[in-house]
């Protein structure tokens, strides 16, 4: 079947098998390997992307369901001028990543979290990161990064 959507600002159309997951479409068809797959049960959150502005787990969405949608992956988060998005910069500054595998999903979830709760407390942040597993950091620096990234997003006046 044919699917069309906008991915990181670019219109894409492809012929896919109906059961193709959005993760497979992004990774295998578009070569956007920043979206990672860490489990088969929608639990780990490594594949989190933005679908029409909201964070979703791309392993739980069929490519066909994203027909006509606006998809942003970790590759498309920054403005394209070579600068990191404030949340990406905050993760680096606060050492909110180690092996980097959960990181793209974590950053995409973090941006959505800040858009939803611009002044989130530590507790709100921790509760809302429940859908993203990190095995390396113990989350301490992810929470710090998220708060710092929120401030950076506020300064920049964008999501």
């Amino acid at each position: 079947m044919n699917v069309s959507m906008t991915v990181n600002g670019r219109s894409v159309t492809a012929d896919v098998d109906p059961p193709t997951l959005l993760t497979e479409f992004l990774r295998d068809h578009l070569g956007l390997t920043g979206t990672h797959v860490g489990c088969d049960t929608g639990q780990c959150g490594s594949c989190t992307i933005h679908l029409d502005g909201r964070a979703v787990k791309a392993c739980s969405v069929l490519a066909a369901q994203a027909e006509g949608a606006r998809v942003v992956t970790i590759e498309g988060l920054a403005d394209g001028n070579g600068d990191l998005h404030p949340m990406q910069a905050a993760f680096r500054e606060e050492h909110g990543l180690q092996c980097g595998f959960c990181t793209p999903g974590m950053v995409m979830a973090a941006v959505d979290l800040v858009n939803t709760y611009p002044n989130a407390s530590d507790t709100t942040i921790r509760e809302n990161l429940e859908g993203n597993i990190c095995r390396c950091t113990g989350y301490e620096n992810i929470v710090r990064a998220l708060k710092s990234g929120a401030a950076g997003m506020g300064d920049q006046g964008n999501g």
Partner: peptide, 13 residues
């Protein structure tokens, strides 16, 4: 700050 982070944070790992 870590050299490796930029590629991990931009999906270039």
């Amino acid at each position: 700050r870590r050299s490796e982070d930029k590629r991990f944070l931009t999906g270039q790992g």
